[in-house]
Design a protein around this nucleic acid. Structure first.
Lengths: 182, 182
DNA sequence: GTCTATAGGATGATAGAC
DNA sequence: GTCTATCATCCTATAGAC
């Protein structure tokens, strides 16, 4: 297999494992097993576990920002934009792990490297909402708030309570309408 | 020193360290050093690192729920309730680490123990907002969204960008008005 | 390009002294 | 009630074979 393909494969596996267990909780061995390669090979390709996480993080940010820019460019009705962006965001949950990796990074602001990248990425999302989507500060904050709740519900695995808890059902349908969830 | 006092001391230190580094990233040794005791003593008192984290988590949930119930009981003007609750929530940021521990727990829903407690706690907060505060699903979701954004900004250490980045300044003042931040 | 073997260090937990 | 010493395990990273 070509080097680039293996790289992609490992990045996908890493996104899933990091999303599930967090930066510290995930091990290079688990990531390697998920990718079907040896643990030293993971380290060999990415240098260190931290560099691997930073690459996963950057990829997640790029994907999110790219998708938002697409939606903004395609959307002609300004009033429908918040709804469209929200829908696009919820759809990103299907890429299991991606948004969760973001969330894990967002609560590690104390880490010198991760914190720097995470803050820059978050602010860039905010900037896109303000400048490209034309949101005012209140709208942008509200929109981001909704995204953070979606991330939290995904991280909590709240869908596990869907059938047993009416309150969870109500919360999920209100916060992230019509999606297959994650 | 009495046993109960040491316990409190360690719980406080653990809240801080877990909030900073997350469940997996925090070590019992760091917590012990922060509390000024030996590492084995921390384990001795709480049994395992996981039990310690679960106790920190439960304490954080109890504090949050208790504060919300207080505000709801004291507030006579129903229309002012969302604002009052939000202010109370932001004030909890001064108890550095508490809300961050919640956030770390909220993204570890895959863990059998932590996930169970985290989901139950989150849903109880939602229930208090619905039943005790009288919010409808939309209001409750919106309110929780704002809380999650506040947690995220705190976890990101976004206040570090306050002076250098006008965008960060705008975002922070919009999302969490007038507080000393964290 | 990918693996096996393993070094080196950290970590959670236990044993036992004081 | 609290500590020192220490074990056993796990984990990241390196060395080197194929």
């Amino acid at each position: 297999m070509r080097s680039g393909d293996r790289r992609e494969l490992i990045l996908t596996a890493a996104t899933f494992v990091f999303g599930d267990l967090g930066y510290s909780g995930a091990t290079t061995d688990r990531i390697a097993k998920a990718a079907g390669v040896s643990q030293p090979y993971v380290v060999r390709i990415f240098g260190t576990k931290e560099k691997l996480f930073l690459e996963v993080l950057q990829h997640a940010l790029d994907t999110l920002l790219g998708r938002f820019r697409e939606v903004i460019a395609e959307c002609t009705d300004r009033a429908a934009l918040p709804g469209e962006l929200r829908r696009a965001y919820v759809d990103l949950l299907t890429d299991r792990g991606m948004l969760l990796c973001l969330m894990h990074a967002f609560v590690l602001g104390g880490d010198p490297e991760i914190g720097r990248v995470a803050r820059a990425g978050f602010l860039e999302v905010y900037r896109v909402l303000r400048d490209d989507a034309g949101f005012d500060p209140g709208q942008a904050g509200e929109f981001l708030s909704g995204c953070m709740l979606i991330n939290t519900l995904a991280g909590l695995h709240m869908t596990e309570e869907l059938d047993t808890n009416p309150l969870a059902n109500e919360l999920l349908t209100t916060a992230m309408p019509r999606t297959k969830g994650a």
